[in-house]
Design a binder for these strands. Sequence first.
RNA 1: GCUGCAGUAGCUCAGCUGGUAGAGCGCAUCCUUGGUAAGGAUGAGGUCACCGGUUCAAAUCCGGUCUGUAGCUCCA
Length: 643
Amino acid sequence: MINITLPDGSVHQYESGVTPLDIAKGISEGLARNVLAAKVNDKVMELYRPINADSTVQLLTWNDEEGKSTFWHTSAHLLATALQELYPGIKFGIGPSIENGFYYDIDFGDYQVSSEDFAKIEKKMMELVQAKTPIRRREVSKAEALKTFGDRGEVYKVELINDLEDGTISFYDSGSFTDLCRGPHLVDFSPIKAVKLINLAGAYWRGDEHRPQLTRVYAISFPKKKELDEYLVMLEEAKKRDHRKIGKEMGLFMFSDMVGKGLPIWLPKGTDLRLRLQDFLSKIQKRYGYKQVMTPHIGGKQLYVTSGHWDHYGADSFRPITTPEEGEEYLLKPMNCPHHCMIYKNEPMSYKDLPLRLAEFGTVYRYEQSGELHGLTRVRSFTQDDAHIFCRPDQVKDEFIKVMEIIEIIFKALSFENFEAQISLRDPNNTTKYVGTDENWAKAEQAIVEACQEKGLKAKVEYGEAAFYGPKLDFMVKDAIGRRWQLGTIQVDYNLPERFGLEYIGSDGMKHRPVMIHRAPFGSMERFCAVLIEHTGGKFPLWLTPDQFIILPVSEKYVEEAKAMKAHLEDMNLRGSIDMRDEKIGRKIRDAELAKYPFMLIMGEKEIGEGTLSVRRQGAGDLGTMKPEDFAALIGKEISEVM
RNA sequence: GCUGCAGUAGCUCAGCUGGUAGAGCGCAUCCUUGGUAAGGAUGAGGUCACCGGUUCAAAUCCGGUCUGUAGCUCCA
């Protein structure tokens, strides 16, 4: 007999050789039906794999990330099986699960495959599901693996096998299809009840542009048909919320070929929105002891040679600007930090001056590959809500905590209810690509981990994701339809203080090196606004929206009164506009609803007579009449609830 | 940067296999002066992204450029 420990801590006795599926059956029929894979001693494996020693076992379902990824990974095999039957002789690359679904990279040879073939492929996949063909693992020697795939001319698989060590190679058979695969997989295809091919895209073999380009088939699958339908609705919703579309419709920003690609132009309404965000953050930062600075948009090349950025990114940057007479070289600034280091150096610093927190909404310019540009989320000119905190090593943790508080305040005010954090540490197996001493790295990494613990922040640790100059903490938010976006960041930097020779005089009268912390709660104003647009679908919170109200005069006769009312409301710190078109009231309401004005204020003979407004809330309808003062109070109250 | 796809009025798009351009919305003017999601009439707007080629003839076919887009690679 062996002891099996379940996640709740309970220990159960089983015969040696028990399978996870047996264990699931022992718990409940329902669980046995829904279980997809099992995590045995932290290793995910198939439900039919016998357990021969004392183990901890977690049964994985669709609700577990690992259950889901197993489901999708098996779906990738299902896709491959279907494709092989439809297109004999195609060559397979890799087929992993991804965040939303899975893909398979395929060399289709002479076959022409397009999205018009999707229905046919989906149909074939569902036929294979019906067949209930078992999927079985088998371990093979390297020689055998090479022979199997070599005979079939599967050049990509052969290359993969060549990189593997003998004794670690496994195959998975499902009917006529055999794949090189680490696994694990479902027992058979039958839990897959719905599949949908999403799109086709080119993808270089092993991500290398000098190697052949394969066709990547993206798809997603679900255990219930209904979940697929919901997913497709979500995709539609995402399309509707696309910030590029809403930005155009609402007149927030634009691009111009003449100005240049990747260079966003902020229109009056977008500028209003962005400035309001900046003011909001500035006020919080003031409370937290930040000092605002401003620095030029270009800087001497030597500044970036000293900072190390020239070495690291110079080749991938805009070319230097040169002066006509002297030939001096300047760079469009890609970073604000070197400028801020100069501010630090402007005066001798004492330990009593630290932490010094310098903040700047600094516009930076980076040459991004043209294929990378995307709306406001990836641009060549953007404004960071940047700040650099210069502090003593013993202050790092406290400063981290303070920045985390600022980020919390912001996320709350913008109703990003769900956020998570990622701690990026260096790759312990390859420490040479980082600058700075081992000791400093260890200290900084520890400070971040401890700060997260103290704030009770759930943070995922990722090794090898750190920047070359220091570890960092990134914040991810989930938007209203469940998509994850990376926003704010806090990064420790032991490198720049070293390179710029920054110092302070300690209480011991000796010179010491400060630590620098880069932080940007929004990240970039452009990207943040894009995420905010998609999160809210253009229905911004009242405190932020460019127009809080629109006055709709019932007829042209009341335009003068509407103008007076607008001025009156503006005196009470509200902002809005008037629809002065010669249209009927129903039409004005419809247009204002579609334009997402939060409040519509209807003024006709009745309201003017009694000095009131008919208030209508976007999406909610008529709220009845009220005095302008009461309307202002209503808005004031709603704003104070989030701020 | 690489590969695929696309570019027609301010916006969304139609225009089959070549015969020199259309709708809806928006905009302007006029009529209408209205009561909680589209009142009516009239009108203006396009070098069909740009450059070149094929052709009697190109929005349409071919090549190149630019821009957008889906991915790949990259991201201080």
